[in-house]
Design a protein around this nucleic acid. Structure first.
Lengths: 332, 332
DNA sequence: CTGAAAGCGCTAACAC
DNA sequence: GTGTTAGCGCTTTCAG
C-alpha cells in the first residue's frame, strides 16, 4: 500500500505538500502540483479514507429523507445515495421525513454533513423550513421549483416532455392523450407544460377532452385510460406522466382489445423497472435518478469544503428510450 | 464523542480490555465483560470504524457479483449489501461475474474480504470453481443446493411454496395451475416441489395439463397463462413462481375478460415492486432479499474473525402477503 | 486474564 | 509556498 509519504519521496517534496495537493488547497505552485500528481499516478496511490476521517473531524453522516410511494424510485434514489456515500466515505442514514422529530433529532447529531430531499418532500415548504431552522444544509432532488438558499439536482422535465411529445408527433400521431401526475407535484406540471408546448409548436389543436388528471398510481392510469379509450374519437396515442400510470393504460387497452402499438401508442416517463417487465415493453423517458442522488451528495461535500453559500442548480441529461409500446399512426 | 478510554474509565478497567470485549475476544472474565458493556451502553458509545480500519489492516472490500435479469431483485440485493457494508465499514464493489477476468482481478486486489453470489450464479459450478481457485471466500444467496465449502443464505423455497399452495387450497381451490421458473434455477425446482407436496398432502390429484414451464419473464407468464386459460376445464387459480410471470398471467386474464379474483385467483412469488404496481395487487410470497445480502456480509465478516472454515447455511423466514389477486373459489 | 507502549495514514496547527 | 510536529481512536505487539 502506498502512502502520501511514498508519493512525497517520489516527487521530492514533503508529505504535507502532497496532502495539500490531494485536498485541492490553493497555495501550491502549479509545477509542484503536477509533480505530485504524476508521482501519485505512477505509484497508483489511493487515499486511505479511514485515516483521513479519523484525523479530520469532518462530518460523515448524510441523511436521505425518503417517503415516496413508488418503491422503484425510492430504491434508485437510495442506491445512488449509497454509492455517493461510498465514494466519499460517508455514512448514509435513511429516514422518513414525516416521522415526528426525525429532522431535529438528526440535526442534533454530531457530524451531519447534510440532507437530501426527494419528491414530494422536495417541494414541501414545512420540511424546508424545519431544515433551515435546524441549520441543516440540504439538496432537493427531482424538482425545479427554486427555493431561496436551496440546491437542487434534477432534469429539465419540460424539455423532456417536449421530446417525448415530438417523438409521438413524428410517428404521425395528432390526437395524443395526456395523463397528468399529481397537481402538487412540481415535475408533473412541467411535464404537462412540455406536452402543451410541443403540441402548440406543431400546430396541433389542444383538446381538453383527452387530458386526464392522475396521481402516479397504476390504478389511476387504468381508470383514466378507460375513460380516454371509451371516447368516440379516441386518441391514437397516450402519454402518461409516469411508468406506473402507463402500465395501467396498457391494461385498459388489453381490456378493450385495443392492440398496442398497432392501434394505440402508449408512453410512460421515468424508465422505472416496470417499464421492462410489462408487455409490450414501454417507450419511456429515462432520467438518471441514481445519478441524481449520487450527485447530490457530491454537491453537499463540495459545498462544505468550499464553505459556500451559493445556490447550485444541477440539470442532468434525460434520454428518450424507445421500446415496443409505440408505433406509427395507422388510420383506421 | 465517547471513546474506549471513556468507557474504560467508567468501567474501571484498562482501555485495552474494552477493546477486547468490543471485538468479542474470548479471554475476558464474564463479569468484566458485563461491566464494560454496561458502561458502553450508559455512555452511548459507538465504535469509530475509521480508527479501527486504520489500525487493523483487516480486509475492507466486498465484491457483489450481480447479473440478474430482474432489476428489482438486483436492486434489493444491492441495497442490502450496501447496508451490510455500512454496518461494518466495508466498501462494496458491484461486478458482473460474466465479465472476463473480473473474479481474478478482484482476488488479486488487496484487502478483499470475500464475495457474494446471487442467482443464477449462485448455482454456477464454473464460477464457484474460479472463486475457489482464487481462494476467495464467498456466500451464495437465494439457493439451497449445497456445495462443498460454501456458505449460503436463503429461504426455504419448498416450505414457502407449500404455504402458498395451502392458502389457495384453503380458499376452496382444487384446480390450481402452476407456472415453473427456469429449470436450471435451483429455487424454481424447490417451489415446484412444494406445490406438488401440498397438493398431495391435501389429496388433490396432480394434473400435468395445468403445469407450465416459464422462465421468470413477464412474456412467458403471459403466453403460458393464455394456454392455461384456454383449457376447457381451466384452473380456478394459478400459482406463478415469481411476480413477473404472475403479472403476465393477469394480463392474459384481462385479455380473456376473466375477472380476477372472482373468476381466477393469481399468486406470484418474491413480493417484488411489481406486485404493488399492478391491478389487482398481487398476493405473493415475501422473501427478505435485502436482509439476505446484508446477512451474507455479516457472515463473511464473522467467518474471517473466527478464521472458520465450517459451512454455514442461514435460512431466513418468509411471509405470505395476501393482497387482492386471490379470493375464494366460486363455482360457476 | 489484563495492561503499557507503539504506531496505522492522515490532517490541523503552527512554524519558517 | 512549504515543512515540522503532534495526535485522531483504535488494535497490535509484547509484558506481566
Amino acid at each position: 500500500m502506498t502512502t502520501i509519504i511514498d508519493v512525497a519521496k517520489q516527487a521530492g517534496v514533503s508529505f504535507k505538500t502532497v496532502s495539500r495537493v490531494l485536498n485541492g488547497e490553493s497555495n501550491v505552485r502549479p509545477e509542484t502540483k503536477d509533480k505530485v500528481l504524476q508521482a501519485a499516478q505512477a505509484l497508483n496511490y489511493r487515499v486511505n479514507s479511514a485515516a483521513r476521517r479519523l484525523r479530520s473531524k469532518t462530518p460523515h453522516l448524510v441523511a436521505l429523507f425518503l417517503n415516496n410511494p413508488s418503491r422503484s424510485y425510492a430504491q434508485d434514489v437510495q442506491i445512488g445515495a449509497m454509492a455517493g456515500c461510498q465514494d466519499a466515505g460517508f455514512t448514509l442514514v435513511v429516514e422518513d421525513p414525516e416521522k415526528n422529530g426525525a429532522i431535529e433529532r438528526l440535526a442534533a447529531q454530531d457530524g451531519l454533513l447534510g440532507a437530501i430531499l426527494t419528491p414530494p418532500q422536495s417541494d414541501d415548504p414545512k420540511i424546508i423550513a424545519r431544515l433551515n431552522a435546524a441549520r441543516v444544509p440540504f439538496v432537493r432532488i427531482g424538482t425545479e421549483r427554486s427555493v431561496a438558499g436551496s440546491n437542487q439536482v434534477g432534469i429539465d422535465d419540460r424539455a423532456a416532455a417536449v421530446d417525448m411529445t415530438n417523438y409521438l408527433i413524428g410517428l404521425g400521431h395528432r390526437r395524443i392523450g395526456f395523463i397528468c401526475g399529481p397537481q402538487d407535484h412540481e415535475a408533473s406540471l412541467r411535464r404537462y407544460k412540455g406536452y402543451c408546448d410541443a403540441l402548440q409548436a406543431a400546430g396541433i389543436a389542444f383538446d381538453n377532452d383527452i387530458i386526464e388528471r392522475g396521481d402516479f398510481t397504476y390504478a389511476s392510469g387504468l381508470t383514466l385510460s378507460e375513460r380516454l379509450l371509451a371516447l368516440e374519437n379516441r386518441p391514437s396515442a397516450i402519454f402518461a406522466s409516469n411508468d406506473e400510470m402507463a402500465a395501467g393504460c396498457l391494461a385498459a387497452a388489453y381490456r378493450r382489445n385495443i392492440r398496442v402499438p398497432e392501434k394505440l401508442s402508449v408512453t410512460g416517463f421515468d424508465d422505472s423497472p416496470v417499464a421492462r417487465v410489462i408487455y409490450p415493453a414501454l417507450t419511456t423517458l429515462h432520467q438518471a435518478t441514481r445519478d441524481m442522488s449520487q450527485k447530490a451528495i457530491a454537491l453537499l461535500d463540495q459545498k462544505r469544503r468550499q464553505d459556500s453559500d451559493e445556490e447550485i442548480v444541477v440539470k442532468l441529461p434525460h434520454e428518450l428510450v424507445i421500446r415496443d409500446s409505440t408505433g406509427p399512426f395507422i388510420p383506421n
